[in-house]
Design a protein around this nucleic acid. Structure first.
Lengths: 163, 163
DNA sequence: AAGTAATTGTTGCAATGCAACAAATCGCCC
DNA sequence: GGGCGATTTGTTGCATTGCAACAATTACTT
């Protein structure tokens, strides 16, 4: 478990090939362990999302996966995304109707805050138990039984502010 | 300013006509004060949203506003919604692609948590400075300059749990 | 090898959202 | 009160997002 603040955004000069390979390896291991099938299509969709740290729309994914001639139908992509989300490998960014590969190894139930840069589109991921607690408590104080908190914050990332 | 927890959800037996009238009066006063025009269409859209405490899609609003014959075009509704959101009279529920009238009198910049009941669809609104602070701090710790935090929590409301 | 379950393909369409231009309306100033 | 710029609304048209329903295929089990 790394320090959360500094690892929120991937640095612009990080080893992205390595980052991608690690994520794919993790996905493979996790599916193996759960007896879930990481089929070629699912793998391709995950790989497409891993090409950037920006959220991609389903139709962007179609273009990235359907390189050699026949491109998959939208429903195919959505089904793969459903699978990947159920297994915590991909997150949906609600405020963008888009999807992003998860590069952290947190459990499916973990609480996550997304930091969305309005300038470069990059998305940082902060997982904080404390915030989750606070939100859950506030919800329960209102007599509400919380399930999945969605927290998305728009703004400008450190890198873009520097420029 | 009322206690936040208890006012998160409107009680099922609240005086809804009064609730609606108050919200419309507030909207009128606010637009008056800001020299903004609460035109008939904008008023109708707000009124449509005020008929329930559930978020409505744009096309549901069309059906509710276009009663006597000619129904407004989608773009008309979206424009009215833009206006109402800019003035803090309506919120967008990102995880539902839907809209809800704001029945609290907070300022536009105020931080709000939405509690979305999966069973009855009602949306409770909790405004907590403390949570906003915590989120902003977490964002800043990651070198991120936050703008508008979106927090939406799905779950089951007190009323539905009782049933 | 047969049978069952899971995955993918095909077709089609519903829902969401808005661009671009034209027409109407409002507010203001002379 | 008429003209003028600014705001609002109407019209047309379309891009994007998302998925239902059924058929075909592939994988897994026994």
């Amino acid at each position: 478990m790394r320090g959360m603040a500094l690892s929120a955004f991937p640095t612009p000069d990080h080893d992205h090939d390595r980052c991608t390979a690690d994520a794919l390896a993790h996905a493979e291991a996790l599916c193996e362990a759960r007896a879930q099938r990481l089929t070629p299509i699912r793998r391709q969709v995950l790989a497409a999302l891993l090409t950037s740290h920006r959220p991609l729309g389903a139709y962007e994914i179609i273009e990235l996966t359907g390189q050699e001639g026949a491109r998959p139908a939208p429903i195919t992509i959505y089904r793969a995304l459903d699978f990947l989300m159920e297994n915590g490998l991909v997150h949906r960014i609600e405020s963008r109707n888009a999807f992003i590969a998860c590069i952290h190894n947190h459990s499916t139930a973990d609480f996550v805050v997304f930091l969305i840069c309005e300038r470069c589109g990059a998305v940082g991921e902060v997982s904080s138990g404390a915030i989750g607690e606070t939100l859950s408590n506030a919800a329960r104080a209102a007599g509400f039984a919380p399930k999945a908190p969605v927290v998305e914050i728009s703004g400008i990332c450190a890198h873009c502010r520097g420029a």
